[in-house]
Simulated scan of single mutants.
Amino acid sequence: MTPARAVIAQAGALNIRIAVAESLTGGLLASALVSVPGASRAFSGGIVAYDTELKRSLLGVDAELLERVGPVDGEVARQMARGVRRACAVGGEPAALGISTTGVAGPDPDQHSGQQPGTVWIGVSSPAGERAVQVACAGDRAEIRAQAVVAAVRELEVELGAITGHQVGTAS
């Protein structure tokens, strides 16, 4: 079973809805998830906020933070993940799990911060908490983006485990 298939199966079994906010990956993460048959049981939707202004206006990332650090930052990724949960609410209910990707695919460094290609941040938001994970990717633009998708799916697996533990811990 592929990691994306495992994520969709586990989220569907737990009745957990996933939403994605993508910058660096430009829709590749959403595509990886919806390529799995039955994805509609677990995937609510996503936002490709490639332009920095969309991170603020659609996802609610703090404008001052974006001005100060630019779009390639752990806190930006975390806020993107939190914001997409709200933005992809269904029936007034936010998605249970939000995940985001932001980074530098290259070939040039980030214009705002000077960070080098291969710098990637994955943001995660769920009832179990929020976090950002930095991932070092290598290769050309396509390889960096593909590695970011793999890392994001891996973080979805980790977070589904944390949510399960959180639900069990809450129920006792």
Rank of each mutant, 00 (worst) to 15 (best):
R5M: 08
A42D: 02
S100A: 14
R17W: 11
G27M: 09
G169R: 13
H112I: 09
L24Y: 09
E75C: 01
E22C: 11
G139W: 11
A171S: 10
T52Q: 14
E159H: 04
E64N: 07
V20C: 14
I122Y: 00
M80E: 06
Q79M: 05
A136D: 13
G60L: 14
A63C: 08
G103L: 05
A128S: 15
I16W: 13
R141D: 00
V149T: 09
G98T: 00
G106M: 05
N15A: 15
G139M: 08
I18H: 13
T119C: 09
E130D: 12
E155Y: 03
I122V: 15
G46I: 04
T170E: 12
E159C: 03
E53W: 08
A39W: 04
G46T: 03
R17P: 02
T170R: 15
E143K: 01
V61G: 04
I8M: 08
A13E: 14
L59A: 08
E159Q: 07
V7S: 09
S125K: 06
A152L: 05
L97N: 07
G129F: 08
A152C: 10
V36L: 11
V90F: 10
S44T: 15
A95C: 09
Q167A: 10
G46S: 12
D73W: 01
A142P: 00
A42K: 06
